[in-house]
Design a binder for these strands. Structure first.
Length: 503
RNA sequence: CGGGGCGUGGCGCAGUCUGGCUAGCGCGUCUGGUUUGGGACCAGAAGGUCGAAGGUUCGAAUCCUUUCGCCCCGACCA
C-alpha cells in the first residue's frame, strides 16, 4: 500500500465532519449499532469515559456529594408536573407502553399487556429524583441533600452523531436540595467550577463559563450556567451545564421542610450534568490529521513500549529490558494514579504497530531494540508534537512525569491559542453576518468563531440568529460592562454574549 | 416529519439505464515463503441465496409492485 500523507482521510481542512467520523473509526473508539441512533462504545472509547468518570467522581466526592441510583423508568404523570419541563422534553421521549410479548399471527412476537400508565425512559431524572426528595426532606436538618447519579438517558433525537448526540448516552446528573436560595446558587456555581476545572485541567480544553440566555435555558430552570468550548472547526460545544432550579421543581413535586422557625417552606434545588459528549469534545479539541491525540491525564494508556527484535536471542533480551522499564514507569505516581504503561508484544509489522498507536492518540511511544539497549537508551516519540529522538533511559524514567505534564500543557495552550485567534468583538450586524458566512457556500470552509456582541435577551434576537445559523452560547461571567447597542435591535444595553455556530 | 441518496463476501465499491457465460474489483482475513528500526513483497486460499417478499420472463443484482432498513440535507435538540 502506498504511504499516505496523513493517517486520516479526509483531513480536517478538507471535510471536518467526515474527519471526525474517520478518527472514531481509526482510533477504534465506537461504532454504529444495530439500533438506530445508538452506538457501541468500544474499549478504547469507553476507557476514556472511565477516566473521565474517575476524575469527576473524585471531585464530586470532594465537594460533599454521594452517589445513588434511581429508576430508568419515569411514570408519565411525574413528567407532567412541571409545565416547562414537559414542553422541553415531550418531543424526544421514548415511552414504554407494554410489559409482555406474545406470539403474533406470522410467527413473530407482538407487545401485549398494556400498562395502565405508560413509563417514560428517563431523558433526565429531575422528576423521579424529586419525588424521592419530597419523601426524604422533612426538616431543615435533612438539608442539604447532595446526590449524584451515573447512568444512561434516552433522548429520541432525529439526527445523531457519535458521542455528540446519540439517542442513548451516558452521563452523570447531580441533584441537590437546599434550604435557601443562596445555598442553591452557591452549589450551582460550585459545580460549574468543578466542570470547568475538569475541562481545563484534565481534558486540556479551555472553556468559557457563563449563563445561558432565556431561550437556551434548561426546561424548568430559573437559570442555566454552562461551560462552552471551541472545537477546531471553530464551532462551539456546550460541554457541561449546571442549573439553578429555584423552587420550580420543589413546588411541582412538593419538596418542603420545616425551618428552625417552624415555618413550612419549599426547598431550592439544583441539577447539573456532563455526558459522553465530552469524548467527542476531546476528539475535536486535540485530534489531528493522523487521528486522536489524547491528553495524558485521560489517556487509558500514557505510554506504549514497542519492542523491536529479529532473533529469538534478541527477543528475550529486548522483552526483559522492556518489562523492567515498564515496571519502573508504572511505579510512578501520575496525579495520584499509577502510570499506565503497556508493552505491545503483538507479532505484527513495526510500521503498522506504530501507526496503530498514533491513530489512538497514545501520548508517548517508546521503541526499543538491541541498539537502544546497548547504549542504555530509549527511542522516544511524543504524539502531540511528533517530536522524537533517542534519550538516556534513566533520564527518561526520571523526567517522564514532567514530559507528560508538558504534553498536557502543550495541548491546552494550543487549544487556547486557537480560541483566542478566532474570537473577536463584533459591534455591527453587517460584520456579524460577514463573520458567520462562509466564502464558498457550496462547500463551506471552516469559518466563523466566537463573536462577543452587545445584545438584549429577547426572542427577536434569537430569531435573527437562527436565520444565520448562529446561536447565543452564553453571557460570560466576569466581563466588563460598558454601554453599547444591541447589534440586532439597536437597543441600548450593557450586556454582551458570545455568539457562535454550535453542535 | 419534508427533500435527496443508498442497500451486492468483514469493510469500501463496480455491474442496474440497455435482463443473458461460472456476479467482479480494491482493502482486510487465513496459509506458505521472502523481508524486517518501520504503515512491505510474492504465491495460494477461504468468504456472497446481490436488504426482504411477491410478480413478469426460457432466463432477474438488473424490469414491475409492495415492504424494511440506513445515510445525507433541512426542521428540532445535551
Amino acid at each position: 500500500m502506498a504511504k499516505q500523507k496523513t493517517a486520516i482521510e479526509p483531513t480536517r481542512a478538507e471535510d471536518y465532519p467526515e474527519w471526525y467520523q474517520a478518527v472514531i473509526k481509526a482510533a477504534d473508539m465506537a461504532e454504529n449499532s444495530d439500533v438506530r441512533g445508538c452506538m457501541v462504545i468500544k474499549p478504547w472509547g469507553y476507557g476514556i469515559w472511565e477516566n473521565m468518570q474517575k476524575a469527576l467522581d473524585a471531585k464530586f466526592k470532594a465537594t460533599g456529594h454521594e452517589n445513588a441510583y434511581f429508576p430508568l423508568f419515569i411514570p408519565l404523570s411525574f413528567l407532567e408536573k412541571e409545565a416547562e419541563h414537559v414542553d422541553g422534553f415531550a418531543k424526544e421521549c421514548a415511552v414504554v407502553t407494554h410489559h409482555r410479548l406474545e406470539p403474533n399471527e406470522s410467527g413473530g412476537l407482538k407487545p401485549a399487556g398494556q400498562l395502565e400508565e405508560p413509563l417514560v425512559v428517563r431523558p433526565t431524572s429531575e422528576t423521579i429524583i424529586g419525588a424521592a426528595f419530597s419523601r426524604w426532606v422533612q426538616s431543615h436538618r435533612d438539608l442539604p441533600i447532595l446526590i449524584n447519579q451515573w447512568c444512561n438517558v434516552v433522548r429520541w433525537e432525529l439526527r445523531t452523531r457519535m458521542f455528540l448526540r446519540t439517542a442513548e448516552f451516558l452521563w452523570q446528573e447531580g441533584h441537590t436540595v437546599h434550604a435557601t436560595s443562596e445555598e442553591a446558587w452557591i452549589e450551582t456555581r460550585r459545580m460549574l467550577d468543578v466542570y470547568a476545572d475538569f475541562a481545563e485541567n484534565h481534558m486540556a480544553m479551555p472553556v468559557i463559563k457563563g449563563e445561558k440566555t432565556s431561550g437556551e435555558r434548561f426546561p424548568g430552570a430559573v437559570s442555566t450556567l454552562t461551560i462552552e468550548a471551541m472545537m477546531q472547526d471553530r464551532k462551539a460545544l456546550q460541554s457541561g451545564t449546571s442549573h439553578f432550579l429555584g423552587q420550580n421543581f420543589a413546588k411541582a413535586q412538593d419538596i418542603k421542610f420545616q425551618s428552625e422557625t417552624e415555618e413550612v417552606r419549599y426547598a431550592w434545588t439544583t441539577s447539573w450534568g456532563l455526558s459522553t459528549r465530552m469524548v467527542g469534545a476531546l476528539i475535536m479539541t486535540h485530534g489531528d490529521d493522523d487521528g486522536l491525540v489524547l491528553p495524558p491525564r485521560l489517556a487509558p494508556k500514557q505510554i506504549v513500549i514497542m519492542p523491536i527484535f529479529k532473533t529469538d536471542d534478541e527477543k528475550s533480551r529486548v522483552l526483559s529490558y522492556c518489562e523492567t522499564l515498564q515496571r519502573e514507569l508504572a511505579d510512578q505516581n501520575y496525579h495520584g494514579q499509577p502510570l499506565e504503561v503497556v508493552v505491545d508484544r503483538r507479532d505484527m509489522r513495526g510500521g503498522e504497530k506504530k501507526w496503530f498507536h498514533i491513530k489512538r492518540g497514545v501520548p508517548i511511544r517508546l521503541e526499543i531494540g538491541p541498539r537502544d539497549i546497548n547504549e542504555n537508551k530509549v527511542f522516544f516519540a511524543r504524539r502531540d508534537t511528533g517530536e522524537s529522538g533517542s534519550l538516556d533511559r534513566n533520564e527518561f524514567v526520571k523526567s517522564v512525569i514532567t514530559i507528560l505534564d508538558n504534553i498536557q500543557q502543550t495541548l491546552y495552550d494550543r487549544a487556547l491559542k486557537l480560541r483566542q485567534e478566532n474570537s473577536r468583538e463584533i459591534n455591527s450586524l453587517e460584520e456579524f453576518i460577514e463573520f458567520f458566512t462562509p466564502k464558498n457556500l457550496q462547500r463551506p470552509e471552516i469559518h466563523g468563531g466566537f463573536a462577543l456582541c452587545p445584545f438584549v435577551d429577547s426572542p427577536e434576537v434569537t430569531e435573527i440568529c437562527k436565520q444565520h445559523k448562529v446561536t447565543i452560547r452564553c453571557i460570560p461571567f466576569n466581563q466588563e460592562k460598558y454601554p453599547g447597542n444591541c447589534i440586532f435591535t439597536g437597543q441600548k444595553t450593557v450586556d454582551r454574549a458570545i455568539f457562535a455556530k454550535a453542535y
